[in-house]
Design a protein around this nucleic acid. Structure first.
Length: 473
DNA sequence: TGAAATGTTGGGGCG
DNA sequence: ACGCCCCAACATTTC
């Protein structure tokens, strides 16, 4: 009698339903992680995420060890590995926490179906406040607008208090063989990961620490501070949430608790909780509209005339060589740290889609490969929102002016100075502006596109597809 | 979770 | 004192 707990993106011991219920059986528990290259590219982890995963697995291994348990690592298709492990260990139960991306959903459904013959299979919700199918409009259809969705979610509430970490995890008499972590080859050959990871502390304990430090300080005027990329006004919890080092339920629970204990805490904390709501909304949408991973939710955009030959332009954008200081700062922050401030994500995305007319999927792919948080649903929501083809999307005419945005949200230019050293000498007034053609600044490129002209071009192109679609949505 | 163009108002300089 | 112009500052509308 043994329980297999299949870890995926729930790399924590606290509030981990699969692990919790496994321990409650009183039987020996075998935690396992499988590096499973899923067949669809959209489910593959990006390179930055794989680096994070390496460290997160390391942390999980240690935490499990402290509880008397051992994480088993395997590589290959889960539909092959799991039956093997069940046979090998004689386990009679298999527990996991659900994933909600289309490919994992399909795979897990099939697995559940087939393995049910040989053992008890149970799955749990560990990564969302509520199941994506639980909160629906009165007519039973999914929400497409955030505010009513979030109001309904708040009314519905969080159904359970976060679960405690098991005090002790019973180990089997015989621990199955495990691959060494290094053999999963999650780290790159050229060790660019070292610089990136110097910005982060990985693991469940680090995540909790970060949240508890953020609430009292960051909660103060979060609403304004979160828009200033030069300040650490955001929680930076996204990668921890992505790998389940902390659960959204814990985040909301602890934030609510903080509010209850600090009557004077301003609405910043509540606004922060609302951001967790956006993550929830993203998964709600992706669950109900799985095709939006690759195709626009708004069908009219399938006929949008994106630029054909955009390879070189895309590369300039990726490398942070567009000649727009705020854009280049953001893209370089992403490259160097695996993360970008949310306000800047919107600005760089707007430039790519609306001024450079590069299909949003190209930007989405780049973010997916370079972000340590790389959350499929949030990423897709964000890019479709920017392109104007998603749910609750920015109207097509909403085009960010990178200079105005820079002046507004990085008024002293500190963020630009941090990531674009070529411009450090510039005054706070000058630093937002592209290089003038005559300006002697050979190490900083001229702007990749004329903002005003490209804006007008985009407006006229968007105008053409504006007619309502005939298809009912 | 816009930007730019256009419209309106009101204070101050000045003849 | 008054009209006139200029132009911020703000509001509205258009893209």
């Amino acid at each position: 009698m043994t329980v297999l707990v299949w870890f995926r993106q729930d790399l924590r011991l606290t509030d981990n339903p699969a692990l919790y219920h496994a321990c409650r059986t009183g039987e020996p528990v075998i935690p396992v992680f499988i590096d499973d290259p899923l067949p669809t590219s959209v489910s593959q982890l990006g390179s930055a995420s794989r680096v994070w995963l390496h460290h997160s697995l390391q942390a999980l291994t240690q935490d499990l060890q402290a509880s008397g348990s051992h994480l088993i690592l395997r590589q290959g298709s889960a539909s092959v590995i799991l039956p093997q492990l069940l046979a090998e260990t004689g386990a009679t139960r298999l527990y996991w926490n659900r994933l909600y991306d289309p490919a994992s959903l399909q795979r897990d459904r099939q697995l559940k179906e087939s393995l049910r013959q040989v053992c008890e299979v149970r799955s749990f919700n560990a990564s969302l406040l509520n199941e994506p199918w639980e909160v629906l409009k009165a007519d039973g259809t999914p929400y497409k607008v955030f505010t009513p969705f979030w109001q309904a979610m708040l009314r519905y509430g969080i159904q359970h208090q976060p679960l405690p970490a098991p005090a002790q995890i019973p180990a089997p008499a015989q621990v199955p063989a495990s691959l060494p972590l290094d053999s999963l080859k999650l780290l790159p050959h050229i060790r660019w990961d070292i610089g990136m990871m110097s910005h982060w502390q990985v693991g469940e304990r680090a995540a909790l620490h970060k949240l508890l430090n953020f609430l009292p300080i960051g909660g103060k005027d979060y609403q304004q501070a979160r828009d200033l990329p030069a300040h650490s006004g955001t929680s930076r919890l996204s990668p921890h949430l992505h790998f389940g080092e902390i659960s959204p339920r814990q985040v909301v629970w602890l934030a609510e608790q903080f509010l209850a204990e600090n009557a004077t805490a301003d609405s910043g904390v509540r606004h922060f909780i609302r951001e967790i709501g956006w993550r929830e909304f993203a998964w709600h949408l992706l669950y109900h509209f799985p095709h939006t991973v690759e195709r626009p939710l708004d069908e009219r955009f399938t006929r949008f005339p994106w630029a054909e030959n955009h390879e070189e332009i895309l590369i300039r954008w990726q490398r942070g060589q567009t000649g727009y200081p705020i854009i280049d700062a953001g893209m370089r922050e992403l490259w160097q740290t695996g993360w970008m401030h949310n306000r800047v994500r919107m600005i760089v995305a707007s430039l790519l889609c609306k001024n450079l007319l590069v299909p949003w999927q190209k930007g989405e792919n780049w973010f997916r490969d370079t972000l340590v948080d790389a959350d499929l649903a949030s990423n897709v929501l964000g890019w479709q929102w920017t392109a104007g083809c998603g749910a609750d999307a920015a109207p097509y005419f909403r085009i960010f002016n990178p200079i105005l945005q820079s002046q507004k949200f990085d008024p002293d230019g500190d963020y630009i100075r941090r990531w674009v050293p070529e411009l450090r000498e510039r005054s706070s007034k000058q630093i937002h502006l592209p290089r003038e053609p005559g300006e002697n600044k050979q190490n900083y490129p001229l702007p990749v596109v004329d903002f005003k002209a490209s804006r007008e071009q985009a407006l006229s192109l968007f105008e053409k597809i504006k007619q309502p679609s005939f298809r009912k949505t």
